[in-house]
Amino acid sequence: MTRRGKPSSARDRLLRGIIAGALLLVSVVVLVPILNLVALSFSDPGRVAEVRGLTIVPKGFSTVNYRVLAANPLFVRSVLNSLFITVTGTAINLVLTSMAAFALTRNSLPGRRFFMILVVTVMVLEPGLIPEYLVVKKIGLMNSLWSVILYKAVNVYYLIILMRFFEEVPVSFIEAARVDGAGYGTILWRIMLPLAKSALATLGLFYGVYHWNEYFRASIYLSEPTKYPLQLVLRQFVVLKDNTTLVGSGAMFSYDEAARLNYEGLQASTIVVAMLPVLIVYPLILKYYTKGVMEGGVKE
């Protein structure tokens, strides 16, 4: 267990205790504000005033906030929009990124040097917001979910990561397949993608989180609230404190319910729903991406 050979002295143990304590404090600082909102969202609306900033256990228990959200057509719509953007966007990301990474790592690709220069250009030159906005307008994607889906169809950094991965596949694998008469399409599909499964899973998770969290392009390209993704509705409601878009639009709830509602609780539950998919895939992210780092300690 002990890495440094010598039995640890009392002073060492004290130091280690202080370090462990300080790190636990970091965890507490990360978790408490989040758990506080979870507690707020499940608290009885009548008792929300009792929930202080450091409370992490709900006061009373009620799912009314979530029921109100589930009954709100705009909210439900925004969750569906976000899911559609995330699933479609990630699928497009993975297909385009892996096809391009494969092509760019083949020596027989004509003009390969030119294409690599293009990739680096895309990486270092950032187009201005307005020119990009005008292009989206010109290609007719304004007020379409596709403007948001296609905005980051290929992330250049991820493309390069996948290229590094493909470069490490032994050439003999590919040559053997070519001898057997396989074309590049078959090689990509049958050899490269299966070998890159965990890399693709990692990229897919990162792309997916990116799409789920996207709100800015949606805010400039989409004009109808029924097309908004959840993060944008959340921004309107929580950051801009605009209660009318989400809550005030039409007969969302009965008069009784509206009177009983507490905005703080409702805002908290909107935040919780917006975090939920990320929390669900988070264990997978830890598994694929940080596995090496997390388990490095065991191998000592």
């Binding site: 909102l37 969290n213 996207e214 993060q231 917006a274």
Partner: peptide, 11 residues
């Protein structure tokens, strides 16, 4: 992994 909208809400 949380969006800045969520983080702003939390903060």
């Amino acid at each position: 992994f949380l969006s800045w909208v969520v983080i702003a809400g939390v903060w």
